[in-house]
């Protein structure tokens, strides 16, 4: 990393805010591809490698990946202020849009027509989520046998079937899952 050329362009706080605001309203169902396009290809604030590394860090942390990414990216270029500005850009516009939708829903959510439309949209949205699960789970189940699928099934059972609180399920499974990953190779 240290021998790579210094980043040519340093974003200002305003540019950081605007870039993340733009990413936030461009991305339906996942902002990551848009973030990559804006930061690596258009603005050239990071190389593809640096982007992947920063994203790996965001994935390592709990919570929404894109939110973590904005904080890590912002702090790299502008310290605490940069982190705050990038986060505000990423959350501000969607928050305004969704608040308007929330007001409309509270007022008209009971109207039969809207309710029928939302039922159809939800059915489709659940289908999309199932496709995401299949895509994520396929490599894990297709690999030669190891312990990973067992932990996925246990997490599913605890949360979906037993209705146990997520923190308990997580704290019960994570230590063993991590320990087995440690001894795997």
């Amino acid at each position: 990393m240290s021998d790579s050329p210094p980043v040519a362009v340093q974003p200002s706080l305003t540019e950081l805010f605007l870039a993340f605001a733009l990413v936030s309203i461009s991305g339906f169902g996942g902002a990551l591809p848009w973030a990559r396009r804006a930061i690596v290809e258009k603005k050239r604030w990071m190389t593809a490698e640096e982007f992947n590394e920063t994203f790996a860090l965001s994935q390592f942390l709990p919570g929404p990946n894109v939110i973590n990414f904005s904080v890590v990216f912002g702090s790299r270029f502008g310290g605490p202020a940069g982190a705050a500005v990038a986060l505000a850009g990423l959350l501000g516009p969607p928050l305004m849009i969704v608040t308007v939708l929330a007001i409309l829903y509270e007022r008209y959510g009971g109207v039969a027509t809207l309710s029928r439309i939302l039922t159809g949209v939800t059915a489709a949205a659940v289908g999309l989520l199932i496709a995401v699960v299949i895509k994520m789970a396929a490599p894990m189940f297709l690999k030669r046998w190891d312990s990973a699928p067992m932990f996925a099934i246990l997490a599913f059972t605890g949360v979906a079937l037993m209705h146990w609180p997520l923190p308990y399920v997580f704290l019960g499974l994570a230590p063993f899952s991590v320990a087995l990953a440690w001894f795997k190779r």
């Binding site: 390592f60 990973a148 067992m150 996925a152 099934i153 440690w182 795997k184």
Partner: peptide, 20 residues
């Protein structure tokens, strides 16, 4: 690396639970 690898099956199970 072990922590990250250990989290993958848990998050898959949780997202499957979301769909359910």
């Amino acid at each position: 690396i072990a922590i990250q690898a250990g989290m993958v099956p848990l998050s898959i199970g949780l997202i499957a639970a979301s769909a359910f």
